[in-house]
Nucleic acid binder design. Sequence first.
DNA 1: GCGGATTTAAACATTG
DNA 2: CCAATGTTTAAATCCG
Length: 467
Amino acid sequence: MCFPPLSLDPVRHVAVCPSDLQQLWKEVAATQPVEDSIKQEGLDLTTNTSNSTSFSAAKVSPPISHHSLPNGQSAMLTPRRDSSSSHEENPGSHPLYGHGECKWPGCETLCEDLGQFVKHLNTEHALDDRSTAQCRVQMQVVQQLEIQLAKESERLQAMMAHLHMRPSEPKPFSQPLNLVSSATLSKSTSDTFPDGLPHPPTSATAPITPLRQGPSVISSSTLQTMGAIRRRNPEKFCPPISSELAQNHEFYKNTDVRPPFTYASLIRQAILETPDRQLTLNEIYNWFTRMFAYFRRNTATWKNAVRHNLSLHKCFVRVENVKGAVWTVDEVEYQKRRPPKMTGPALPLPPQCCCHLLSVHLLQAALAESNFPLLNSPTMINTSSTSGMLHIGHDDVSSTVEQVNSNGSNSPRLSPQQYSHQVHVKEEPAEAEDDSRPISLMATTNQNVTIPEDRDLEEELPVEDLS
DNA sequence: GCGGATTTAAACATTG
DNA sequence: CCAATGTTTAAATCCG
């Protein structure tokens, strides 16, 4: 089975990094129907899925079924919906129609009424290669979200267990999503190497390539034909590396996805995470491999890049130590590297830049669609993911690292409000996953997000005024 | 189109 | 000598 190059690759390599889904959609949406068309009757959306991901979810997820909608549209929706969708049972509404707009991923076309929408659906989202590809992507999205949800659920369970808080019911939010067994999922994603390193789920398979490159379509075919691939622009709009890392730590650790950060920022992060603010080259290497599944292969390449960056950037200072040389970060220099570009009025953020905001948004959307009220509370969705966004305005300086503001060179950044404006998620000002978060989590489960008083000054930023 | 930033590759030097 | 470390150059690409 061959798929159109442009549509296939985004699917196969769908990063489903929480951050890239929207962009993914854009790209797939932009994909032209390809000559190597898939015969309509022969569409096998599952094939690619199982090939494209080594997550067990791919196997466990039931094969997709092709529902025929009254309008003749083949609704190859994600497995989770089966027949339980309240939308489908409700005449006068459509699962892909809401708030006056088409909910087809990446579409958002305004439709005044259902009739118009149906017409739009039939014309714009008919059964063709593009729609098929989008459908596959959606499957991937859902699977990833399910996996992530399962993991977060498990984490929550563990947290609550640790704090002697019994959840009202076991695995409260696993069922509605047609989740793959949480046990299976968590197993598949939390396997560890003998050395304790997490087992990259995608192990020997092609890496999941983050499609964060902006508008340009980076399909794997493109990747293969292109020489040096830019994975740039990570810090410009995306959340700070520290919070992004904190929130998607497990993701990057377990998924063979290239982290959307520059080598320089990663190196710096590695160094700043240490108490001494200094690391040997080898320790930097270790940090990379420890933190990112992606860096557990192609070592020669990225290690070379690391060394290159260390030498190239003035912000990295080599210090002779008793036991050899260590590398430190000259924060002033680092800040200099990036001139203040974010001044001025609130920038409309491209969707792909709202990394975990997006992930939360997507999760929410997915969960909302699944009519799972509890999880519609942002605080219940990967609390660590919803959190930390308040750090966005602080660049990627780890919250554990004192911001070097004294030099006055800290450039203006997007304010948290600006970020949160993009996605209607109310953040909880939390960052790491290992502090007292569960308490506040419980406190906020019932609805509103309250700012725990134990937050540092970073959380003093106003958080309301969210769209 | 230009220039800065980034990535990748590679050659070379230094060091233990 | 070898591997690790460090420096430098060059090319390709992205993006403002």
